[in-house]
Every structure is written in C-alpha cells, then in structure tokens.
C-alpha cells in the first residue's frame, strides 16, 4: 500500500486503460468489425473493472445488491480477473491466427486457379465487348 493506493488498483487500472484505449482507438479508426455495441460492451466490462479498482466501496454496494459479503471475495475476484485476462488474450490471439490461416488459404486457392480465372476474365471481356 502506498499513500492509500493498493498495488492491485494500479494493475487493474493500467490493464483496463490499455484495453479501453485499444477499443476506442480501433473504433475511431473504423477498423474491421468495430461497432458501437462492441465499444459499449468493452466500456462496460473494462470500465467496470477500473471503476471497482478506483472505488472499492462500490463493491460494498454490489455485495449488498447481490447478497455476497466477505473479504475473501477480493482474493477470488483478483483470481478471476487474472484468469479472465489470460483467457481473453489467448482467445483473441487464437482468433487472429485463425483469421490469418483463412486469409492464407484463400490466397492460395485463388493462386492455384489463377490460370482459369485469367482465362475467364478474357472470355468475359470479349463477351462484353461484343455486346
């Protein structure tokens, strides 16, 4: 603890800030697959984590609403956060690799058929010229 700030608060806020920054950056630069709804979900998930880290008392309100109380929850929550973060990054990485494999497969299939495609392009061009 340093000046009333705990280490976990710094870590959670740092991670959340990076994820929020990435989300907003991708949305603003209109990268593929970015929608308003996706941005809102990101803001809710990562913003929510940052909110709890900055205002821990917010969890008391949540605990009252949900009905679970006790300090051990903080440990479990941190564990969950860590595991969630790892799964999140792993699944994102796998998805990116999957997309790259699809893109390579696509390019390969077009390349394999390039002679037939060029022949068809010529035929279509000639047919259109006649019309």
């Amino acid at each position: 603890m340093l000046g009333g700030i705990h280490l976990y608060q710094v870590v959670v806020v740092a991670i959340s800030s990076v994820m929020l920054f990435q989300g907003i950056k991708e949305f603003v630069s209109r990268e593929t697959g970015q929608t308003v709804l996706k941005l809102l979900v990101r803001l809710a998930v990562w913003g929510g984590m940052a909110l709890i880290a900055i205002y821990p008392n917010f969890t008391l309100f949540m605990a009252r609403v949900i009905g679970i109380e006790g300090n051990i929850n903080a440990v479990i929550l941190t564990g969950f956060l860590f595991v969630f973060l790892i799964i999140f990054k792993l699944l994102s990485a796998i998805e990116k690799i999957e997309q790259n494999i699809s893109e390579i497969t696509r390019k390969q299939s077009i390349h394999d058929a390039h002679e037939q495609i060029e022949k068809l392009q010529k035929e279509i061009k000639e047919k259109r010229a006649k019309e």
Binding site: S102, T105, R106, S109, A113, I117
Partner: peptide, 22 residues
C-alpha cells in the same frame, strides 16, 4: 465450372468470402 479449393477446412463463411473474392 470455376472450382476453387481450400487446402484446409476454414468454415462456410471463409468459403463464401473466397467465392465472392473470385
């Protein structure tokens, strides 16, 4: 016909995108 082939199974969406690209 123009028969394209994915060397790996990538899913229906991937196959449609390849066809649309062609």
């Amino acid at each position: 016909v123009l028969a394209l082939r994915h060397r790996l199974n990538r899913g229906k969406g991937a196959a449609i995108k390849t066809g649309i690209l062609a």
